[in-house]
Design a protein around this nucleic acid. Structure first.
Length: 583
DNA sequence: GCCGTTTTCGGCCCGACTGTTTTCAGTCG
């Protein structure tokens, strides 16, 4: 939808980086960063706006508006091109390494001529970096660690980026004449947190028109391999996409095969062997006669193996086949089960949209309830005060009345909450009296990520014991490919959450997905409850919930585990926690 | 380069942490 917004946002983010790297005005760089964020999160497509309309977007003034118009008119922005000409693209790539910012990247480039991560690693191993002013052995160590972290996510892309590409391609191929079915399979269909390449599957009698359409897609930058059953391309953004075309009657077996996981497929093939059958991407066959028994739908294939259809998010060989055989597959939580979002921001702190716009967008999504949880004062960069928070609450109450009046079907109730900061001792921003007035409190770690494990564990336990803390936000604080999760005794934390009635968040932002599937499985065994939240900082982020739901499914969660699938009365009871009569 | 209950110029988020330095620069959230 807002694809051109993303293009412009990426361009200005790059421009901001280039300004920083070349030692330009830091304030100017920040303005472009802010504009990039605002444009990326803007609801309307910027390609259709004129200079005047563009200037209505916060942090977009005359100069930036004109650059946007220039971009859509000429395909580039001359100011950006000038800086690009001065700095190799690889230098900017260096700043993706954690602990390596624009100043160090420029020093490395100017002094040693290094403009790629590989060259940098070589220079460190050759001990050439430590001669530079401001660089020492520890810096080298940190950079190497950062490179390892960066490469641990490899060439994998985030879930949202891969989903956008895959859905776009599926939509285009579905329109090709002769295409009977088209869907993406692979790790994307299983909603893994990062995606290596996208597998698209199509059913047709004749593969030729589909293959031709595929290699001719606007997003196709390079055709890596081209055949009648399989074609591989690389998109303009560098993502590898495979298209496989199968005969219509093989659809189910092929979809099952290409969805994986490998471990799940091995398990299902074993099951087939035990029954004198053979399972491949072409179908389920009788070994004796060689005759194909079923292959048209996944349901047929699973049923013939004595299994119910297994949701793709469970197909990781984590006991789903055994559970299926016993008829004990969980009834997984679905996106449509989610009644409300319990962690969202507005422009009162670091969100992009005003309260009214966020609430309207939430209502548009059909939520039955919605919580506003802006940051609290201890995250000093957010400039929150008691007065601002109370004024926001007034406005939330008014809006609640307005939206609540729309009745049971289309009405939405608003909760006024807060995202508290859990300090190194496990304390939060406000005293009990003030906290008691919120409808709910999310509490999260935002700093001091490197505390010793014992201290970190105590910090979380203390927060859980707080009778006003309802949800631990993005519990491990990891950022995929950038920052590992905190080191704490998570089992102790999960047990404390279960004991105290504190929910664990499944933060749906594609860069976080925190808790992840494995943590969810562990926490569920402790009896903890969960909240699937968007942590939206713009109206567009509200849609991220789908990724949180997918992650929850990978953790085998049902609606009983997820507090924001519950009716409001049951949710409110949970939010009262242990505090009734204790204060 | 943007913005305005500190308002059309002069600020702009700010404090902590780290590693490199002998008083600070760079990075991060």
């Amino acid at each position: 939808m807002a694809r051109s917004n993303d293009e412009v946002a990426a361009l200005f983010a790059e421009y901001a980086d280039l300004i920083s790297i070349t030692g330009g005005d830091a304030f100017r760089a920040r303005v472009y960063e802010k504009a990039a964020r605002a444009i990326g999160g803007h609801h309307a497509d910027v390609s259709g706006l004129d200079v005047k309309g563009l200037q209505e977007i916060p942090n977009v003034g005359k100069s930036i508006a004109e650059k946007i118009v220039e971009y859509f008119g000429t395909g580039q922005v001359s100011a950006v091109e000038e800086l690009r000409a001065r700095i190799p693209a690889g230098v900017r790539r260096l700043t993706a390494i954690p602990t390596l910012g624009p100043k160090k990247a420029m020093a490395i480039y100017q002094e040693l001529g290094i403009s790629s991560i590989e060259e940098l690693a070589d220079a460190i191993h050759g001990e050439r970096l430590r001669d530079l002013k401001g660089f020492g052995p520890k810096t080298e160590e940190n950079i190497l660690h950062g490179i390892a972290l960066l490469q641990s996510s490899g060439d994998r892309v985030m879930l949202d980026a891969a989903t956008d590409v895959a859905e776009g391609i599926v939509a285009q191929l579905s329109n090709v004449t002769g295409c009977l079915r088209c869907a993406y399979a692979g790790s994307l269909r299983r909603v893994r947190e990062t995606i290596g390449d996208v597998d698209v599957l199509a059913a047709a009698e004749d593969s030729e028109p589909l293959m031709r359409a595929f290699t001719g897609l606007p997003e196709t930058a390079e055709v890596v391999a081209h055949g009648t059953t399989k074609t591989s391309i690389r998109t303009t953004k560098g993502l590898a996409v495979d298209l496989r075309v199968v005969p219509p009657d093989s659809w189910g077996a092929a979809l099952q095969y290409f969805t994986g996981s490998k471990a799940h497929n091995i398990r299902t093939r074993e099951l087939a062997v035990h029954r004198g059958l053979k399972l491949s991407e072409y179908g389920l066959f009788d070994v004796e006669s060689g005759e194909r028994i079923v292959s048209a739908t996944e349901e047929d294939v699973y049923a013939r193996l004595g299994l119910p259809w297994i949701p793709p998010t469970l197909r990781e060989d984590r006991g789903e086949v055994q559970a299926g055989l016993r008829g004990e597959l969980p009834e997984l939580v679905q996106e449509s089960d989610v009644r409300g979002d319990l962690h969202t921001h507005t422009d009162l702190t670091d969100g992009l949209a005003p309260l009214e716009e966020m609430v309207a967008a939430a209502a548009e999504r059909g939520h039955a309830y919605y919580a506003i949880t802006d940051h609290a004062p201890n995250l000093s960069m957010q400039r929150m005060t008691d007065e601002r928070m109370l004024a926001q609450r007034e406005r939330v109450r008014e809006l609640d009345e307005e939206y609540g009046r729309r009745g049971r079907r289309s009405g939405m109730r608003l909760l006024h909450g807060v995202e508290l900061n859990i300090d190194p001792d496990g304390e939060v921003d406000w005293p009990d009296e003030f906290l008691a007035e919120f409808d709910l409190c999310v509490a999260s770690v935002h700093s001091h990520f490197n505390q010793a494990p014992d201290a970190m564990t105590q910090r979380f336990l203390r927060a859980c014991e707080n009778p006003y803390v309802n949800i631990i936000g993005h519990p491990t604080t990891r950022i995929i490919g950038k920052r590992p999760g905190v080191d704490a005794d998570l089992d102790a934390v999960f047990a404390a959450c279960a004991r105290t009635g504190t929910a664990l968040e499944i933060n749906s932002h594609p860069d976080r997905l925190d808790l992840n599937d494995e943590h969810i499985l562990r926490a569920k065994r402790h009896g903890a409850k969960f909240a699937i939240d968007s942590d939206a900082h713009s109206t567009l982020h509200l849609a991220h919930l789908r990724y949180g739901v997918g992650t929850a499914q990978r953790g085998w969660l049902t609606t009983d585990d997820v507090i924001n699938t519950w009716p409001l009365t049951r949710l409110r009871r949970f939010l009262r926690k242990g505090r009734t009569g204790t204060v």
